[in-house]
Design a protein around this nucleic acid. Structure first.
Lengths: 332, 332
DNA sequence: ATGAAAGCGCTAACAA
DNA sequence: TTGTTAGCGCTTTCAT
């Protein structure tokens, strides 16, 4: 079902059909009606691909993610809600085909493959290496670097981490471990920074052995927590760099039959929906994910319409949500 | 940054560059190395659009949804997890640009615009009118019609609805209202069917005034519930056709200061993540959304690889999850 | 008002 | 081994 089929069926040239379906001037009413009739009868729709190759604008915004996990799914909901009524369609692309980790520079690849033709602008979710000169307008959510590149949206990572650790300290914890996030993301470093600063401020000496590498994934969080909890003098609390890692830590505690929060407190970061469906429900730092997505979309649309030309950096608040995985440390 | 730029910089023809980047035979090692060097230096990536226009296969699977809401987001997670390692990239497309309701036949439009060129196959989420002859392999999740069209995946809607209503009846409820789902979706009718059959079986006469039209949206659920709860002899329980409607009913009860579950019981359907973060937490019928997404993806991949040619209809179990919005009716 | 033709970036026959 | 050429479906000048 191509434009040629329609043209043939209507007895006109493809150029005329193109004019009709794009409401261009210079078509006789009778011709217009005839072509439209054929279009409807045949159920013809112009191919996004072919037209985007020729045109410059497509009215499609791309959302580039490594994979569809809870975090990006939440952002997507916010982006989708905000896209409503703007006239833009959404195309979410997940380019991580396989392998242990998403290839470095995945966002550059996705961007090159889609930009210029398919999408007018892009929202990059947790990119690790945004090129400074992108071919199309771009907004990055929780990027590898705070400033310098494109416009960004993120939440208060340092403040959130401090709130998390402060909460644990106020409960009486002293041996507080930290499950790191992905090393290539700025947010990880900021959260670790908040953790260290808060300990320092409370006069608790920093113990490097209590900080474990991670990558924001559940399985890695589990492994890291197993290491931590298998020690003679194990920590009484774990601050995980994100909720998925925290769920992994919860898995580990369950395996080792360590009671949460009786013997071990756990705090996460993000407040993904799953945080409320665990047993016990996860204490965490809530990021306004929907709002972050909506903000990113609004910023991008402004850039696309030429209203805003300079880059902006939107910084949203994060806050502690106390649920059931935190309690005072065991007395002993 | 096009293939022409690379060809010029490397001093070869575009055809040669194409052969190199696609690892075709018939290129001298020296030429290969030189072209590759230029490709890396310039950061060239072949345009998905241009190549897909020419090629038949793109190794991209499309997921077509009306919008990114909790239900489709959950499916997306399941689809994404299952896509891992299959070699297929995922492109999720939301084509509802604005207006009150998604235009009828949205999936046909999306499919025409993307199929044949951009995507090799598609997963349609809650389509309302699947054409019987699609240009590419298609699997529909919770479609408008049970059989006849393409392969489908859905959950046991009648059984789930019966379990929901049975639960309410066993608690002692007699005046049980039903908030309908989208009229254009088979699942709505099946759930209503389960509701009616269960009442009948329990010997409770069917009261048409207790069945209210809806469309699976939260705001509509709220309005419907307000109507129901504003009556002199109001129902003691509501079975909502999906969780979003149930959340709307919860909104309505809160506005009218009706205690849930003390004065009113509510049961939803789907078990989206939000169901556990409401106050009180929602009793609902759980559909295995991740598994449904994963199943759909697997079926599609099988079709694409030619292993499976006939259509299949996968029917997954749904089950009652009792949480906090159901209790015996008020004594009075 | 209509159509012929060029070309978007790329791939694949085919020729050299 | 390499390059020339046609063409994927569409839009857009530019003739007619």
């Amino acid at each position: 079902m191509t434009i040629t089929d329609v043209a043939r069926a209507a007895g006109v040239s493809v150029a005329t059909v193109s004019k009709v379906v794009n409401s261009r001037y210079g078509v006789a009413p009778a011709t217009y009606a005839r072509v439209m009739a054929v279009v409807n009868e045949l159920g013809y729709e112009t191919s996004l691909i072919a037209s985007s190759l020729r045109r410059s604008r497509t009215n499609v915004i791309g959302v580039l993610v490594t994979e569809f996990e809870p975090y990006s799914a939440e952002l997507l909901k916010g982006i989708g809600a905000a896209a409503h009524g703007t006239g833009y369609e959404l195309l979410a692309h997940s380019g991580w085909v396989g392998g242990d980790a998403p290839p470095v520079g995945w966002e550059r690849r996705s961007l090159s493959r889609l930009a210029g033709t398919l999408i007018d602008g892009a929202i990059l979710v947790t990119p690790t290496a945004v090129a400074t000169d992108t071919p199309i307008p771009v907004v990055a959510i929780d990027p590898h670097t705070g400033r310098g590149g494109p416009s960004t949206v993120d939440a208060d990572n340092v403040g959130g981490a401090r709130a998390a650790v402060e909460h644990l300290i106020s409960l009486g914890h002293r041996r507080i471990a930290h499950l790191r996030g992905r090393a290539d993301l700025e947010s990880s470093h900021r959260r670790e920074e908040g953790y260290r600063r808060c300990l320092e401020q409370a006069g608790i000496p920093f113990d490097p052995s209590l900080v474990i590498d991670g990558d924001y994934q559940r399985s890695t969080g589990r492994v890291g927590a197993l290491d931590l909890l298998d020690r003679v003098e194990r920590p009484t609390a774990i601050f995980a760099a994100n909720d998925l890692s925290a769920l992994g830590a919860l898995d580990a505690a369950r395996e080792l039959r360590i009671d949460v929060p009786g013997e071990l407190s756990i705090v996460g970061f993000d407040d993904i929906p799953d945080a409320t469906s665990t047993m016990p429900r996860l204490t965490t730092i809530a990021q306004p994910l929907h709002q972050m997505g909506a903000t990113a979309l609004k910023m991008l649309v402004e850039q696309l319409s030429g209203e805003e030309s300079g880059t902006r950096h939107e910084h949203l608040r994060s806050e502690l949500v106390v649920r059931e995985t935190t309690a005072p440390p065991p007395a002993h």
